[in-house]
Write a protein that binds this DNA or RNA. Sequence first.
DNA 1: TTATTAGTTCTGCGATAAGAGAACCAAAAT
DNA 2: ATTTTGGTTCTCTTATCGCAGAACTAATAA
Lengths: 153, 153
Amino acid sequence: MENSITEKQRELVEKFGVIEEQMGIAPAPARVNALLTISDSPELTFDEIREALQLSKSATSNAINYLLTLDRIGYKTKPGDRKRYFYSRLNQWKASFRKSILGLDGYTNMIREILENRTTDTVQFNKQLEELANFMDYYIKESIAIIDRWEKR
Amino acid sequence: MENSITEKQRELVEKFGVIEEQMGIAPAPARVNALLTISDSPELTFDEIREALQLSKSATSNAINYLLTLDRIGYKTKPGDRKRYFYSRLNQWKASFRKSILGLDGYTNMIREILENRTTDTVQFNKQLEELANFMDYYIKESIAIIDRWEKR
DNA sequence: TTATTAGTTCTGCGATAAGAGAACCAAAAT
DNA sequence: ATTTTGGTTCTCTTATCGCAGAACTAATAA
């Protein structure tokens, strides 16, 4: 029952885990993704993850599947080996940023819908709302553009 | 006990509320902020909010104070009137975006710290990590720049 | 055919969150 | 001096989360 992860690595997993928790990821998934980023081998099996993090099977299973739906991790298989080898999908960040930025679109549309239904009496306030919507549009467009620029660099 | 908010407005409050919930705000605060955006009068008192949303005093109080700490709302007072008049701080968005972008810095530093402690055996993986950190730096810098550009427009 | 592997799914439980309602409190009005 | 106003804080309930542990399952191995 050897451990395969150093004290320093364990410490980094916790530290990174906390950062990921602050980004809205539950403790166990956060640790799993951290492990896959920190472990010497960037491809680990279910049981290696489970053992390194001392998680239950259910927690491991749920964490992995959650991260898979988020596309934060992926897995490969090896011929003649039933196990899956999970890895952190480091380069999904661009896609994930893009998606969250485009998600602001719903917010912007909502602001415009509110504006259309507002009393016209509150001139100053409505102007602010409109400016907000315009800023959002601008921000969305420009943010996407900077990601594109990075990709075509 | 008249109502001061139309059916349509009530509907918009719910719709906007749900969007804000998806951004991580609890139901009651989400409704309060939505109300302050949608209501004909953009400045409402504690009791007007409470009554329009049919919330308990504690829920109203907590929601308001939570939104105040987030700077999503503010309040003014009127001379010789003990009540506070709450309003949605529409223009805090730029500040709030800026802050959340700068928050990515901690993530980037973490990535670099991980990189410094990684085995050098996994060349490809480490290269990806480095590229991620570089992308993050770029994204942070450029995002801040686009907000600045909007402000100096 | 039976056992093992590589997980998944199903309770169950402790911890936290959201909000109601009532008690509470300080400042102002009566 | 006591009542009212404009809240805040405390207690309790219900709901949901995060996870462990055990039961389960489908595919492979013996």
